[in-house]
Structures are given as structure tokens and as C-alpha cells.
Write a protein that binds this DNA or RNA. Structure first.
Lengths: 214, 214
DNA sequence: GTCTATAGCTTGATAGAC
DNA sequence: GTCTATCAAGCTATAGAC
């Protein structure tokens, strides 16, 4: 295995720190110390703290969203000329996250925590999520509309929002459910959680979007 | 209206800052400046930063959880001797949050953002949520078990987890859904979101927990 | 690319006046 | 309870050696 470049070391350290303490709770020195480099090198490679945070997000974003889009296309192609099932689409959106945390190493796990916290931040989080994810989400919403033709937009977007909250928390790796459930569920068993998430969310979508004959 | 005590002013300012920048992203000086008092007064009343954060959480926690427990008891009493409906219980858990953000002023809105971010933090968030909310949650889970007698614990807790993620994001006030939906949904219209949340979540619970005849 | 050195600001903590 | 004053430590940013 080739040595990681210093830049990668810095990004790894920053990812860890940001996921634990948030974008404003981390000093460049914290990052440099953990990456075992000098502070000035952080600035040299990545700029100011804000830019470091952005670089951390961007590093894995393309991989994640490209894989999601691939799953979406496959689901559509596989079902054609019929419409794909709702299950297939919910799975397409969430399965890439499952793949990464299961096989991508610790870094990807921390990345999911980062996204979950961004998703829930009132000040800048919503705007950043819009910037990074809305183009992809809109592609998915188009397909939802096709599968659930009687749904109105407000219901559809509300469903997506609930899905988003459940999904990001599920992969946020908080360990909460382990203690609450006294061992009957392991939050680190992402596969088991994901298997339950898909039918749960599909049932929710259908309850709101399916029988709108008023 | 009586003037707020300085201590309350400090807690208000801290709540705002913590909700925007996280528990590690706020200096005592940030808080003092916004509360229009000297730094040393923050320490005098509330101690170190960690203690300030804890005090912010504790200030509204009792109110929230007491109201939830009241709703739970009412739902049970109202349905007796039958079991209450799943809808009634999901509503009991979430309606207190709706009440507070609708009538409690800005502070309560920020508080919900704070809880949402705590819920999604991997390092300390899960532990704090366990500490603050598990006793109440366990009371609710007991009732879920009664209503859904064929569910096994793992499914039940997974459902609660998904509920928790959707619920906290819904009240986190991120504004995300406004832009994504191009105006067809206002995330500040909590009542409209809550009306959709309840049937969505109930359908999810039923999909996983109802027909376990294998 | 990587580090050392340094300048100037911000921070948490505390001692003491009123 | 509230404020002023102060200090050592930690912070960002940058200039410059290798």
C-alpha cells in the first residue's frame, strides 16, 4: 500500500475532527496535530478552515452521487418499459450509502456523520444540502412523480424530507439505538438497518401519495 | 412584561449560538456579546462552556418531556379499556414539539435545531440523547409493544429510530425543503408537516411490525 | 512541498472593585 | 450580581528558509 499523500492525511484528520466537533469547533491546529504535519501545510494545501470543510465534503461527494445515479438508471432500465417499483427507487437512493460505509473504511463512516449533521443544521446546513444534493434529488423526485401519479408536490416533498431525516440518522453512527434497544439492534449493522428502512419508507410514501381520490 | 434576568438573557444567547455553530463552535465571549453582558458573568452563572450547553438543554427538557408524557397518558386513558391507536401514540410523541415551536417563540425553534443536531452527532450525541430521552422513550416503546404485539424488538426499535430521524429533522428548521420544493412546501409551516408526518410514520411502523406471521 | 518563526488577535479563567 | 483588568495559552495568517 502506497503512503497516503500529506494532503490526504490532512483531509482524513479534518474529516474526523469535523464529524466529531462540527465545522466551527475545529482549529487548524487540531487538524495539523492529528495529521502529523505543520499548521501552515494545512493552509497551503487547502486554504482557510471553511475551505478545508468544503474540500472534505467534496472529496467523497462525487463518488456517492454518481453511484446513486447509476443505481437509479439501472432500476429504470431494468423495469422498462414498465415503471420501476417504489422499493427499487428508495433502495437506489440509500444503497450507495450502505455500500460505502460497509466497504469504504472508517473515513466513509465519518463522512456520513458529517452529512447527517449538515442536514440538521438550521443556519447553513439547509443551504449546503441544497447545493450539494438538490440536482440529484430532483432526478429522484421526477421518478417518484411517475410512480405515484396522484400525489401532489407538497406530499411528495414532505415524504422525501422524512426519508432524508431517517436515512441520514441511520448512517450517522451515533450508537444511540444500541443502548436504547439493550443489544437487540446494533447501529453498526447497517445492512440490517437498511433492510428495514426501505419497506418503512415505501409504506410511508404510499400512505401519503397513493390514494388521492378526493 | 418583566425584564428577563441576565441569566435568562445568557441562556437565550447561548441557545442561539449553539444551535447555529454547535457546542464546540461557540466561545463564552460570543455568548456574552450577544447577551450584552460581560464574559465573567457567563462563568459566574453557568460555569464552563460545557455546563452552559447542558444548562441550555435542561432549561426546556422538562417542559417538553412532561407534556409528551401527559399526551401519552391521555391517549391511553381516552381509549381505555381498548388499546390506543398507533396514530394517537405517534401524535403524543410529536405533538408537544409542534405546540412548542408554534406558540413558544423563537427560543423553542432553536431548541429543536439543537436537539436535531445532538441526535445526529456520532461522538457524544447518542450518549446525550440516551441520557435525556431514554426513560421517556421506553415508556412509549412499551405502548408500541402492546399495540403491535407481533413485532420483535429489533423491528420496533428500528422503527423508532427512523421516526426519530424524520421527527427531529422536521422540526430542525433548516429551510431546505422550501427551496427544494420551489415553494410548494414551507418548512416553517410545522403544522402542515406534522399532519403528514403522523400517517407516514404509522404506515412505516405497520409495514415492519404488523404481519409477522412466518 | 514542507517546515520554522513570528506577529497580532481571541480565548478561558480568575482576582478584585463596587 | 455585575463589572473591569489581566495573563498565559491557543489561535489564524503569513513571510521566508530549505
Amino acid at each position: 500500500m502506497v503512503d497516503k499523500s500529506k494532503k490526504e492525511q490532512i483531509l482524513d484528520a479534518a474529516e474526523k475532527a469535523f464529524s466529531e466537533r462540527g465545522p466551527f469547533g475545529v482549529s487548524l491546529r487540531d487538524i495539523a496535530r492529528d495529521a502529523d504535519v505543520d499548521v501552515s501545510l494545512v493552509t497551503y494545501h487547502l486554504g482557510k478552515r471553511e475551505d478545508v470543510y468544503d474540500a472534505v465534503i467534496m472529496r467523497r461527494l462525487e463518488t456517492l452521487n454518481t453511484e446513486r445515479r447509476k443505481y437509479l438508471d439501472e432500476a429504470i432500465r431494468h423495469a422498462a418499459p414498465e415503471s420501476p417499483s417504489l422499493e427499487a427507487i428508495i433502495d437506489a437512493f440509500s444503497h450507495a450509502m450502505l455500500n460505502r460505509v460497509e466497504t469504504g473504511g472508517e473515513g466513509w463512516g465519518r463522512y456520513m456523520s458529517l452529512i447527517a449533521q449538515m442536514n440538521n443544521n438550521p443556519e447553513w446546513g439547509g443551504k449546503m444540502m441544497n447545493r450539494y444534493f438538490d440536482p440529484l434529488v430532483k432526478s429522484f423526485v421526477e421518478v417518484f412523480r411517475e410512480i405515484l401519479p396522484h400525489a401532489d408536490d407538497a406530499d411528495l416533498y414532505a415524504c422525501y424530507h422524512f426519508f432524508s431525516g431517517a436515512l441520514t440518522l441511520t448512517f450517522a453512527n451515533t450508537g444511540r439505538i444500541d443502548q436504547l434497544s439493550e443489544g437487540s439492534l446494533k447501529s453498526a449493522d447497517f445492512d440490517a438497518m437498511h433492510q428495514r428502512l426501505v419497506p418503512f419508507i415505501c409504506a410511508g410514501f404510499r400512505a401519503l401519495c397513493e390514494k388521492k381520490e378526493k
